[in-house]
Design a protein around this nucleic acid. Structure first.
Length: 270
DNA sequence: CCCTGAACCTGACCGC
DNA sequence: TGCGGTCAGGTTCAGG
């Protein structure tokens, strides 16, 4: 379910109900997620969550004792529910708070993760090799240009590589390339500095716009309050195979790149 | 180091 | 109604 805007929307949604409150208990109904939920996660019980932050698509719940690391995978979501509400199918983990509410992790496909570290979370194995945040000043055209020289991988796969830049998921990768008029098939090493400037701007715009909209570009995005996000009909190419390009009317094409679907306008994007 | 493809898992949908 | 195949918003890992 989540791309970066959905994760950021989730972070903003839960923060007011979580920050400053104590964790009463952890309930694990299904420990087998992407990685097993560690037994040591119970160490968080009795500690106060001091901050909810995000790195890439990971949510970090900090306490004095350690940090709970959450990833929503493909199909995960977090909801704030009364702690005594009966769990539904795929409600794998509850973080029960002293307020009587629980942060409930739901994830049918179980590609998500709930981890615990007492070290600096940014040094964690999963976080330490991540690329730059797309909405930060550390993400700029010259960086992409330099890193992409001699790379033959497609530009689409290149911008989705989390070692380079994080948070550009499959939908927004297609959308950003359309906005910057670059073919997803073009080799990353064959993209000019000028075009990387356009692309970086497009990625920043597409992501921040989606965050402003509340991350509701995804049709089944469930917000923290349980409401379905209002699906904005604003995707210009993703999921629009054979439909008319919003700019020139050409039929949108679909192709597979690195096992993922890409959508593009063969006329506008070169 | 770079690149590709398999793997993890469930559910929805489509054609027969 | 059932069955098999395909597809889905992510990411790591093994191997060439």
């Amino acid at each position: 379910m989540p791309e970066l805007p959905e994760v950021e929307t989730t972070r903003r949604g839960i923060a007011p109900y979580v920050e400053g409150y104590q964790v009463r208990s952890i309930i694990v109904r299904q420990a087998k997620l992407r990685w097993s939920v560690p037994e040591t996660l119970s160490e968080i019980e009795g500690h106060t969550i001091t901050a909810v932050t995000r790195r890439a698509k990971y949510l970090l719940l900090s306490t004095q004792k350690g940090t709970l690391i959450l990833h929503l995978g493909m199909s995960g979501n977090l909801q704030l529910v009364p702690a005594d509400r009966p769990p539904k199918k795929h409600d794998h983990v509850d973080i029960v708070l002293s307020t009587g509410k629980a942060l409930r992790f739901h994830d049918p496909r179980r590609f998500g993760a709930v981890l615990w570290t007492t070290e600096d979370p940014l040094r964690h194995k999963l976080l330490c090799k991540l690329g730059v945040e797309p909405l930060s000043d550390a993400f700029y055209a010259q960086l992409l240009y330099n890193v992409s020289r001699k790379r033959r991988v497609s530009i689409k796969q290149f911008i989705m590589n989390a070692h380079i830049v994080v948070g550009v998921g499959n939908i927004y990768a297609s959308e950003s390339l359309f906005k910057s008029k670059i073919s997803p098939k073009r080799a990353a090493g064959q993209v000019s500095l000028a075009r990387y400037r356009t692309l970086v701007d497009a990625i920043k715009q597409v992501l921040s716009c989606a965050i402003e909209q509340g991350g509701t570009t995804l049709k089944d995005f469930v917000q923290v309050d349980g409401k379905l996000g209002y699906f904005q009909q604003q995707l210009t190419v993703y999921g629009r195979e054979a439909a008319a390009c919003v700019v020139c009317g050409t039929a949108i094409k679909k192709l597979k790149q690195g096992q993922r679907s890409s959508f593009y306008c063969p006329t506008c994007q070169t």
